[in-house]
Write a protein that binds this DNA or RNA. Structure first.
Lengths: 138, 138
DNA sequence: AGAAATTTGTCCGTATGTATC
DNA sequence: AGATACATACGGACAAATTTC
């Protein structure tokens, strides 16, 4: 079989279809997507093509994958079902830069950074932890 | 030839090597990386493996690719290229929870979390790194 | 202007490794 | 321990964009 991809590539069309299913609730948040082998059969595409489609969804934040387990749908636009109050707690501290973070910020490992931590809770239960690192002024 | 990847995958090792060359100025910002066919010969890896390594560098902001042309080296210490706007780069991955984060979120250490990382740059210089951790649904 | 060469993009098939169930 | 599912790697083929002649 030849490999034409006139117009839109197949992996993108497949990603579009899977994204639709997630947004429409056909695959609800938290549910596993069909296995790669299953999708291979359904779309009649090679595994590499299926994997590229799923990678697209990961990049977009629609899905997350765990080796040996599967790929599950994420709730992309929440976490507002609010009305119920969201409690937000922010704290500041100074921390040394890890090697990983230092590389991204283009500074030396161990340099001091300002870390702003935000914890989001609902009904007293923390569901999100955010840490922002910045190079201190001066 | 078998296809083992004990320890670190080959594509990551290749990405590390190329990143080193960019950071060390062996491949200066704006210069083209060797063609995929050339890298295939040098590292004796399949083209897909080379492409995966380059994709890693793209995600990290060390390179940019144009079809029919090649892959350019970038530098986050380099200005130019984009205007005065703030460049925002978001990536998503799953990571095990550190003890500290696990405590805050009330989960077990090592549990898998979804990490959304956002890097803010201006004039090509990263000045803010944000990491948000959430418990995956399901 | 046109054709050929170069380079990246997509797709297929297969095999093996690694993590989870 | 076996089955299932994702991860890595190989090799080959054709498509599309750019450069070169």
């Amino acid at each position: 079989m030849p490999t034409p991809h006139y117009g839109q590539p197949r992996y993108r069309a497949i990603a579009d279809e899977l994204r639709r299913r997630i947004e429409n609730g056909v695959i609800p948040p938290g549910a596993l997507l069909p296995a790669e082998s299953t999708l291979t059969a359904e779309f009649r595409a090679a595994r590499g093509t299926i994997r590229k489609a799923i990678a697209t969804l990961r990049d977009e934040g629609f899905a997350a994958t765990e080796q040996g387990r599967g790929t599950y749908a994420l709730s992309h636009l929440d976490s507002a079902k609010s009305g119920d109050a969201v409690e937000k707690k922010t704290s500041l501290r100074t921390v040394p830069a890890s090697a990983e973070i230092a590389r991204v910020l283009g500074i030396e490992t161990g340099s001091l950074l300002v870390e702003k931590q935000t914890i989001l809770r609902r009904h007293g239960i923390a569901y999100s932890l955010t840490r922002e690192y910045r190079i201190p002024p001066g």
